[in-house]
Amino acid sequence: MGLFMILFTLIGGITLSAQSSINGTFSRKAGTIETTFLTFLTGTMFLTIFVLFFGNGNIPALLEAPKWQLSAAFLGTMYLLLTVLAVPKIGVIATNIAGIAGQLVIGVIIDHFGWFNSLVIELDIKRIFSLLFMLISLYFIYKGNKRSSEPTEA
């Protein structure tokens, strides 16, 4: 069961990279804002069906939720908008690596201080090394991208 779930999650990651490629292509003709808008709109349509059939939460509780929690929607919007903007310029893999790096750094900071009621996990040697490897990864993707785009552009 565990292995099956891991495979399932791998597919989740694959769909995410397909999404950034497709959106990058679509945005070249339709525009960045338009592409992001369409992604959210069709996503909402699908989720409406999902929530109606499989939802067992409490949507009206949204009205009582603290506003700072609701403001996360602006962050979600920003993420997609910036991704659509970056893919046509630096490519799918570089956008994803840089995105993950940003995610890890902030994730480690949030854990360290226990912001937003999260579990406090202090920054230790292992995590410092982790951030170091992440920087190495960013460096390699920048170099690698430069190298493989040079012969085609020249």
């Binding site: 939802g55 409490n58 949507i59 991704t83 956008t95 840089a98 995105g99 949030i110």
Partner: peptide, 26 residues
Amino acid sequence: ALLAGAALSFEGAIYAELGKAIGQLE
């Protein structure tokens, strides 16, 4: 792109809280 990832982390942490109140799918 780095900024996009940073936004995603904040979003995830905040939505974890919201999810407790209204459900994940919601």
